[in-house]
C-alpha cells in the first residue's frame, strides 16, 4: 500500500513537471521554490504526509544557486517519507514558511535561519534559538571559520 502511494505521488508530481525519484527508501523531489507551499499542501492534504520531520539547508559555495533547502515529511498512516529539495541563490536565500501548515516548522525554521541564513517569508519570529542575540554570521555556512568565537563574557586575564 505504501509503495503504491509513493508511486501515485511520483506520477502526480512528474505530471506537474517535477523531478521525482526513489532514493534510499524515500521519494526525493526537486521543486522550484515558488512551488514549495503548494507542494507541501498537496503532500499534507492530498497524500496524508502529516508529520513534518525536518527542514535544513546544504551550502554549496562553488555552485549557483548556492543553497539547497531540504524538507522531510513522513506519513504516520502509510509509514513512508518524502524529501523536498529546492535550490535558492546566495544573494536571495528566501523560501516560503511552512508554519501555517505544520507547527513543528517554527523551531526548525528558526534554527535553519540562524545556522545558514535562509530566510522564511511569512515567519516573523526568526529569533536565534540555538545561538544567542548578537551572534554575527551563520556558522554552518562553509565560509564561517569553525573556530571563530564570539564570546559574550570578557575573559579573565
Amino acid at each position: 500500500m505504501s509503495a503504491d502511494l509513493l508511486e501515485r505521488l511520483r506520477a502526480r508530481l512528474v505530471d506537474e513537471g517535477r523531478e521525482a525519484a526513489f532514493a534510499h527508501g524515500l521519494l526525493a523531489v526537486q521543486i522550484p521554490r515558488e512551488a514549495l507551499l503548494d507542494t507541501a499542501k498537496l503532500l499534507k492534504e492530498g497524500f496524508g504526509f502529516d508529520l513534518f520531520l525536518d527542514v535544513t539547508a546544504v551550502d554549496w559555495p562553488d555552485r549557483d544557486p548556492r543553497f539547497d533547502v531540504v524538507y522531510h515529511f513522513y506519513s504516520t498512516r502509510d509509514h513512508v517519507r518524502v524529501r523536498l529539495k529546492t535550490a535558492v541563490t546566495g544573494t536571495d536565500p528566501v523560501v516560503d514558511t511552512l508554519v501555517p501548515l505544520f507547527g513543528a516548522a517554527a523551531y526548525m525554521e528558526r534554527e535553519c535561519h540562524e545556522m545558514l541564513g535562509i530566510g522564511f517569508r511569512g515567519n516573523d519570529d526568526l529569533r536565534p534559538i540555538l545561538l544567542y542575540e548578537g551572534f554575527e554570521g551563520h556558522p554552518l555556512r562553509k565560509d564561517y571559520p569553525k573556530e571563530r568565537e564570539q564570546p559574550l563574557v570578557r575573559y579573565r586575564e
Binding site: 556558522p139 571559520p145 569553525k146 573556530e147
Partner: peptide, 15 residues
C-alpha cells in the same frame, strides 16, 4: 569541541 560555540574552559571566565 574546538569550535565557535563552546567556551574553551571555564577558567577563562571564573577561577
Amino acid at each position: 569541541y574546538q569550535n565557535y560555540a563552546a567556551l574553551q574552559g571555564i577558567d577563562k571566565i571564573i577561577p
